[in-house]
Structure formats: structure tokens, C-alpha cells
Amino acid sequence: MIRRKSVAQFLGFWALRLSVWLVLGVLALLLYDIIRRGAGVINWEFLTKPPRRGMTEGGIFPAIFGTLLVTMVTAVLAIPVGMFAAIYLNEYARQNRFTRLIRLSIRNLSGVPSIVYGLFGVILFVNLLKFGTSILSAGLTLGLMTLPWTVTASEESLKTIPAAYREGALALGATKWQAIRTNVLPYALPGMLTGTILGLARAAGETAPIMFTGAAFSLPFLPKSLSDQFMALPYHLYIMATQHHDIAKVRPLAYGTALVLVGMIFGLNLTAVVLRYRLRRRRR
């Protein structure tokens, strides 16, 4: 009896351990491959100059710039709207079948393939609202795609705040909004921001939603306004990896681009972690 229990424990433990190794192994392999092949091309010129000679030489600055810009537009839509929607859903909306349906829909939206968002963006922003293929259209499309993640993460964060904080404030004569603003939001904010930034990081790496809404194959100039087209790292990478006629020549540059993109997303995620740590510490 005892032996059988310890065998089960042994097997279970190793199944868990192997799963972790598998996950970390794939990640390590991926990073190793990108760094080994991409690190060589990264220098000052690569980061600050536009591509030359049909992308076979030069840098990727316009793509870096475009990705930063479009991510900012995404943030401007997704952060406030996502947080406010979460506050409304968790604090104000009645908890009934209708709100459960809304919540379920939001969860489902986060599973909709990104190409669907891309095509929806073409219809809504490019054609209907006449924003054209532009940074604005692409940023808003990415924003829509990020919203379900932002709302869900923010709501989960609000749920972790004990009801006693709200009741305690109300019992002292606080209005509902005062209770939320002074006794809920400050403590939920770190979690809300973390979830939001992770959503943004995911959006920054997307290709499908921006492909038809604003990302350009190649541009001689940097965009001057939100209504211009732009180059973006993931799209640039996609082109170099699959659409270029001289694969052998652009391959190293493609790896360099991949490394920069991964680096940027890692940077964003790191920001989320640092921000959460700081805000948490400040509250103690």
C-alpha cells in the first residue's frame, strides 16, 4: 500500500517536472536560435537607419518607430477604456444573468483570431470611419483586440480587493465612488496595470490586425501624423521571412529584427513587473 502511494507520488512529481522542462526547453531553444543568428547584425546602424537595397542592407529604424507609435495608440484606447469597463462591471453593474453573459462574451472575444480583428478593423476604421490605412486605424484595431484582456485582467485584480475595504469606507460615510477611488483602486492598480501591459506587449507583436489597416511594406519616410501609414517590426519580419525574393541575403537581418522585437516585448513585460513591484511596495 505504502509502496503504491509513493510510486504514484514519484510518477506525478516527474510528470510535473518534465512539463516544466518541456516549456522552458522550447523557450530556451527559441531564444538561443534567435540570439545566435540575430545578435551579429545588431549594431547602431541597424537600430537607427532605414532599410536599403530592397531590405538586404541597412537597418530597421522605421519599423521600430512605427511599432512604438502604434503601441501608444493602442495604449491610449485599451488602458482607460479597459480599466473603466472593468470598474463598471465589477463595482457598479448588477450581478445577474445579463452581466454574466457580457462577461462570457468578453472572455470569448479574447479568443477571437487576430486576423478577424484585422478584417473588422478594415471595415470599421479604414472604410466606415474613413481613417484610411493609418497608424490610427491599426492602433485602434490592436486596441480592440487588447480590450478583452485588459478588462478581464483589471476585473480579476478588482476582485482580489476584500469587500471589507469597501464596506469599511461606506460605514464611515463615504460615497460609493469615494470608497472605490480611495479604498479599492489604489490597491487594485498594480494588478490592473500589469495585466494591461501584458496585453499591450501581446498587441505589439501582432501582424494580422495591422496588415490591412495601416502597416506598409516599405516606406521612404517616417510617418508624420496618425493618418500616415507606418512600418512595424512584426510585419517587417513577416515580409523578410516569407515574401522576399532573396531569402539568403535577408535571413540574418530577419533574425536581427526578430531579436529586436522579442527584446522590446521583453522590455514591456519587465516594465509591468517592475511597476507592480514598486506600487506594491509603496502601499506598505
Binding site: Y165, E167, A171
Partner: peptide, 19 residues
């Protein structure tokens, strides 16, 4: 009700200091 709760205070079962 907000003014009422200022006039009628409450201490809860479990101590609930704010952080």
C-alpha cells in the same frame, strides 16, 4: 444614506483596518 452612515457608525466582526 451617506450622511446616515456618518451619523450611525459601525464596527465589524472582523477587524478591517485599511492598508
Amino acid at each position: 444614506p451617506v450622511e446616515l452612515r456618518r451619523r450611525v457608525g459601525m464596527v465589524f466582526q472582523k477587524p478591517n483596518p485599511f492598508p
